[in-house]
Design a protein around this nucleic acid. Structure first.
Lengths: 160, 160
DNA sequence: TAAAAGTAGTTCGGCGCCGAACCAAAGTCA
DNA sequence: TGACTTTGGTTCGGCGCCGAACTACTTTTA
């Protein structure tokens, strides 16, 4: 086995830091624009609702966000409390709780798009298109590697 | 401005997912080895204590971890509760709370090293050394870009 | 069609994580 | 030396996030 790269900083540290700093920047952008009660963690939910433009059951948000349902219960409660969405009971299936954006929630759309463009521009300063593509290819590769590895753990666990 | 890469998946999603999956794998590795009460978030603290091998004030852990002091108060309390470290009052400066690993805490060292090697190997399957280096270079570049961007926000804020 | 199994959400407890308020010990300085 | 500020930590409240337990509907199935 070849000697491992004792990098001055492991790739996972690098990735954690990038994620944290970018979240921090997003947080500040939201704050700067007077948006209260929304944090980056809500992004998956809100973007999903932007796309769907219809009342959506919580279970869909669970899938779309990768979070556990109790987390989604809490997050939608927070977003409802701040007036970005409303939750109503389902009709065909009474177990469903349907979630949809309010006008205040829909109004975030443009701002969010602007912000993600701005942050993406910041991220890629001094990195040309080919390098960007090489980077996302490598990251996709790693993403797949980790998913495969995790699948093994899960498979083993299901055998027990 | 060139058209932006409307990637099937933004780089930040990719990075978030990698971080999450790798944390999940670390969590399972710890669990598999019967380690209770330790989660990936404790890594920075524990590795710092591995390196120092002396009673360390909380303030150092704050710096080393990048977390806020109230977070460190909580995390060291958790780790103490599970017997990995002890907190004692300082002597020269009575405000200091000194933290040091117990034998049970020091015993984690080898395991942690093994685990990080294993995960790193998983991550880099099918990615050769030059690609690894290009990847970490790009990520370091982005890390710097984001830090610079964040510094601007902070500077602006301090002017207000 | 009644019982069993599955599905959608909520609630609860616990921890990470933050910011604000607070306390106590040091350091400063008039 | 006594007041003022700084510094090291803790506490508190709030939210993200999870897993386990629970409720209430639906669907299956015997």
């Amino acid at each position: 086995m070849a000697e491992r790269m004792e990098s001055p900083e492991g790739i996972l540290d690098l990735i954690s830091r990038i994620r944290e700093t970018s979240s921090e920047i997003l947080r500040r952008e939201l704050e700067k624009n007077g948006i209260e009660g929304v944090v980056p963690a809500h992004g998956k939910i809100i973007f999903y609702l932007f796309r769907e433009e219809r009342p959506v059951p919580l279970s869909e948000l669970v899938k779309a966000s990768g979070r556990v349902k109790s987390t989604i219960t809490g997050m939608t409660a927070t977003l409802e409390k701040h007036g970005y969405l409303i939750r109503t009971g389902g009709f065909e299936d009474k177990r469903n709780v349907l979630v949809e954006l309010t006008p205040k929630g829909r109004a975030l759309r443009e701002l969010f798009n602007d912000i993600s463009i701005r942050v993406l521009d910041q991220i890629y300063i001094g990195i040309d298109r080919p390098e960007q593509e090489a980077l996302t290819d490598s990251l996709s590769h790693i993403d797949r590697n980790l998913k495969d590895a995790l699948a093994l753990y899960i498979a083993k666990e299901n055998i027990q």
